[in-house]
Design a protein around this nucleic acid. Sequence first.
DNA 1: GCCGGAGGCGCC
DNA 2: AAAGGGCGCCTCCGGC
Length: 551
Amino acid sequence: MLACAPLADGGYALQELTEQGDAVGPRRLARPDELAGFSAADRWLWACTVDDYPALIAAGVHVPRCHDIAVVERILLGRDGVFGDPTWPGAVVARAQGRPVPAGSVAVGTDEMPALFDLPGAAGPPDPAVDPIELLRDAYLDQRRRAGSDRALALLLAAECGSALAAAEMGAVGLPWRPDIHLAVLDELLGPRPPAGVRPRTLAALAAEIDAAFGFPVNPDSAVDLRGAFRRVGFDIDSTRSWVLKGIDHPAVAPLLQYKELSRLHTANGWSWLDQWVTGGRFHAEYLSGAVVSGRWATRGGGALQIPRVLRQAVVAQPGHRLVVADAAQLEPRVLAAISGDVALQRISADVDLYAGLAADGFGGDRATAKVAMLGAMYGQTTGEGGRLVGTLRARYPLAMGCVDDGARAGERGDIVHSVLGRACPPPGDYWEAVRIGRQQDATDAERRRADRLAGDRGRFTRNFVVQASAADWAAVWLAGLRSTLGDVPGAELVFFQHDELIVHVPSAAAERVAALIEDAADAARRMVFPGSAVATPVRPVIVERYADAK
DNA sequence: GCCGGAGGCGCC
DNA sequence: AAAGGGCGCCTCCGGC
């Protein structure tokens, strides 16, 4: 294991360590352009992949595996109910020794201080008396001790460290993106690019239509204005969400819905987005693995996890290459089947289309209804059709429904829940005081209602957490496993990952092989994350030139 | 003028 | 079919 610490002078300290933390061989110092000389190292130890890996990637170093102190610390602290505390090695060691975390230090790449600021030396202590390699080693040994021999936790930590490597590489390599196709889409839907601050032609025309339909001027970008306008024409709505508008019979609705859709494209993924995020035919986002409490990824800038479907046609493989697009179909209900031990639902999970299987099993073949019911169960829907249908599921799959219901009750009590591999959800925040007050004998009706609402919100969060976080566990193991096997395929690049879906860009001749590796990795993840379970977590790799052709 | 929250909507 | 979970990002808007 090669410990690697950036130094204040821009260079690096490197030290080979045994798994027990003992130094092997001499301490080395390297300038950034000398890092390629360390490519043979199989496993790296460093403070934070988000901060430390990009420079190595730029130097041409591929890191097969790592131990990321920050990633591991975040998970370990979370299991102790601590969220948002500093995770850099000095903080880890200080906590281990019962000392206060040194003041003035800044944790980079964590929630409280995004790497955005990138202060020099921020990832480590400014104290020159402390040897950065020793600090790394001490933090590593403390984390190993705290992680103990929990097999599931070890798998989670390894998968999260691998995911962090994948995230950094993915941001660096970028998603193939054809600006010419993107521009053609914008031109077709919005018209020619207008000067800054001017509405594109299509939006201007729709705004005029909306004004004409109301008979007075309205700013369609303002929810306040719109609500007032609809009130004036006899519709008292408390939101202008599109599903609310769809229930209104008024000539302004149709152009307004169209306006909202196109305006969204213009502001979120229009010309300025293209200018800002696409360079050299690639969309470079900054991916943050495990940044969501459930373990899902987040991105900073570019909105890479919200690419609208209409722009997937701009994601095109380079000449001589293909995209292998794979998603884990209906992952969350399958994960629920596994973690709850519900054999009946596990049996359904063998179907390629789980919802169709559900429908045949208890919903008279009505797939749409079965899907609504299952989503309602996982999200905590209580009203309407979805809420009513959960009863049918409860009768047929009592273990699965019991699992999410238990999760909800734990949340309503203020308790913690965990993912299958042991990621903890955050404890309730300051608002829980209001729940406590509202549950006292002498609480007012208003206090009771507030407590019920807050506890209900918390229950829906924990209900969903057990499923969403366990799905994220599976996906991280899938991704990290695939990443390690892709090393044997020349030219294969992981270029996209979105919760339960990934894309590999690969020379055409190797596409079939990559598709097989993706399926193998999914099967391995199923066995490791859900050992002994009969659940199926199939993935469907599709080999295409354009992302839009994958579905 | 700055800033944070709200509203809204894209993705899963 | 109804509006339940998680995010990021944009604009608007009200408070300072």
